[in-house]
Design a protein around this nucleic acid. Sequence first.
DNA 1: TGGCTATTTGGCTATATTGCCAAGTATCGA
DNA 2: TCGATACTTGGCAATATAGCCAAATAGCCA
Lengths: 106, 106
Amino acid sequence: MNQKTRSRYEARAQIMKALAHPTRLFIVDQLAQGERCVCELTKMIDADVSTVSRHLSVLKAAGIVADEKRGVQVYYSLLVPCVLNWYSCVEGVLKASAKRHVAIAH
Amino acid sequence: MNQKTRSRYEARAQIMKALAHPTRLFIVDQLAQGERCVCELTKMIDADVSTVSRHLSVLKAAGIVADEKRGVQVYYSLLVPCVLNWYSCVEGVLKASAKRHVAIAH
DNA sequence: TGGCTATTTGGCTATATTGCCAAGTATCGA
DNA sequence: TCGATACTTGGCAATATAGCCAAATAGCCA
């Protein structure tokens, strides 16, 4: 694997990493329903505002969400709705794993 | 967010995490073209066999690949081809980011 | 201006991930 | 049985990630 190939996979992994966290997956789900300000998301997630803000900045750095300041609040919105298509695949993996575990148990 | 919801997102994130690594993304790409043994993958990836083996075990634990021992070799295959659909979305994110960076630069 | 709310960032600790080496296990063939 | 090859696992050090608190920044309104 040469350097160019390696850095392409690196870039892809960076985006996957941004989504590889329960809180950030939750945030993406919420933003799929429309824009939300940090305070709204913080209310839903049981964590410090600073933690939520950090998660949002990770998603923003990855290019997955956009932010827009309106007055004193910052509204985040989903920039790439196609990530939502992944969910059905992830669910498929989970179901298959569950089935396999049952099979092993018996 | 209640406990049940939290653990569902936790499970999803676990799967995303398994893919959030350049080497593992490369492996998935290779397996998309057919099964490969550890030695073949190790040759392609410039890393210790033990490292490649560990990456494969992460993918296996997530339910993304399956392994089958044949003689002295272990062949891995892609169990969930739908993860390949994510690539176009990831590329889209990368392209959009690149465009944005250019726009900021000017 | 001063105080209030919303958000971000610095700094810290705790935890998780990664990669290597070395050692262990398994299969095959001489 | 012995040796060689393929692979996995234990253990360690380096690095990355996560979460919290405290402090800084920014906009709004009295």
